[in-house]
Amino acid sequence: MTAAALDAHVVVARREFTLDAAIRVDAGEVVAVMGPSGAGKSTLLGALAGLVRPTGGRIRLGDAVLDDGTRRGHVAPMHRGVVLLGQDPRLFPHLTALENVAFALHVGGSRGARARADAATWLERVGLGGAGDRRPDRLSGGQQQRVALARALAAAPQALLLDEPLTSLDPETAADIRSVLAEQVRATGSTTVVVTHDAIDAVTLADRLVVVEGGRIVQQGAVRVVLGAPATRFAAAIAGVNRLEGVARGGGWASAAGDVALPAVDGARVDAAVQEGQPLVAVFAPSAVDVRTRVDASADDASAWPARVARLEATLGGVRVVADAHGQLVSAELAVSHAADLGLAPGVAVTLSVDPRAVRLLAA
C-alpha cells in the first residue's frame, strides 16, 4: 500500500464525555496529538483504527470511507489499511523476531524466502540485524519495540497510528527508538498520527501539532508555532513556558485585577495589536524569572510580584519553583544550591521579577 491522506471528523458521544474533533493529515505527513489525561487522544486514535465506533462524523482515508457514523458504514480494523502501534509491542511470543515481522508480510501476500528476506531487511533498518532468531522473551523492551515498529512498517499501511509508543521505555532507550522512528517514518513516507505526552516527540517526529482538551481541538499548527504561542495553560506547560492571561495596560501587560504587571519597555516582543483593556497574554520562559526572598526584593521594581511558593519540582537541571502571585501560577527554574540558599519550601514568601524584554505578548 501507499500513504494516503487522512481526513476525519470524529464524534464519540458517551454518557459523561464527548469527543468532537476534526483532523486532517496529508499523505506522508506526520501529525502529533497532545493533551492532558482524559482529553480524548486515545479515543481519537481508537476511532481512526476502527477499535472505537464513532457515533457521528466521517473518517476518510484516501478514497475510502472508513466510518460514516453508522453501523453499516464501519470498516473493520483489519480491512482499513491502518496499523496501530502502542506502548505494548504485542509480539507473538512463540515466533522469533524475524517471524514476527514476516507475519505482516504474509498478511500482505508475500510468502516463503521473499518474506523472510524482506523481514530481515526491516530488522536491519531498525538496528536489529543480528537478532532475527530471538524470541521476544530474549529481547529487551527497546528491542521488542523496534521489532514491533519493523512489523508495522513492513505491513506498508496507508496510515500509521502511534499511541505513546515510547512511554514505557527508559529515557536513553526512548531516545534511541525516537531516532529510529523519525528516520524510518520519513524514509517510508508514512502518513502518521502520533499521540504523545512528550514535546520532544512532537519536535523530533512531527510536521504539525494538534492539542486536544476536553474532547475538542483547542489549537493546531506547525509544531514551532504552537509551542511558540501556546493558546492554553496545558499547551504552555508542554512548551515549557509560562502563560499568563491578562489585559493590555499602558503599552504593557497586567493581570485583570492589576496586581501583577509587566510594564512596556523597549525591546519587548509584542505580537499583538490590542487596545487598552483588551485581553492580552504574556508568555515567557521559567529561566527568565528571578526569585528572591521578600527582604532582598527592591520595592521600586514595577515588575516585582509578591508571591508564595506553591510547590517545588525536580528537573534534570535543578529545581522548578511554582509560585502563586495573586492567583497567577508562575514557574521559575533555579539551581538546587540557589533554591537551598533561599530556603525555599511550600508556603515561603518570595518576590518574583521578570525582565519584560524576555516576554512575548500575544492576543488572547
Rank of each mutant, 00 (worst) to 15 (best):
G62Y: 13
G129A: 14
L262F: 11
P230D: 08
E29Y: 06
V10R: 11
A297F: 10
L362C: 04
G112N: 14
L139T: 01
A358V: 03
P36S: 09
G215N: 01
R269I: 12
Q278I: 08
D7E: 13
D7C: 01
G189H: 08
R125P: 12
D170S: 06
L227A: 10
R294W: 09
A237S: 12
L209I: 04
V193S: 00
R357V: 13
V147D: 05
L161G: 04
S42P: 05
V75P: 08
G318A: 03
Q144W: 09
G246M: 05
A261S: 15
L244E: 05
V291T: 00
E16N: 13
A358Q: 13
R208L: 02
A76M: 11
V212C: 14
H197C: 01
S140W: 09
S110K: 15
A268C: 02
E245G: 09
G240L: 12
V226L: 10
L161E: 08
R151H: 10
I177C: 02
V336A: 14
G62V: 06
V289C: 13
G228Q: 00
P263G: 07
V195R: 01
T232E: 00
P306T: 02
V226I: 04
G38V: 11
T351L: 01
V193W: 01
A174W: 11
R60D: 15
V126I: 09
V223Y: 04
V11P: 04
F17Y: 03
R53Y: 12
S303N: 07
G189I: 04
A206P: 09
G112S: 14
G127V: 11
V10E: 10
Q158E: 14
A335W: 11
A261D: 00
T121V: 11
G228M: 01
D170Y: 05
P165A: 12
L209H: 03
I177H: 02
R146E: 01
E16P: 01
R60A: 15
E183N: 07
D259G: 12
A117W: 08
A113W: 11
R134E: 03
V354M: 06
T315W: 06
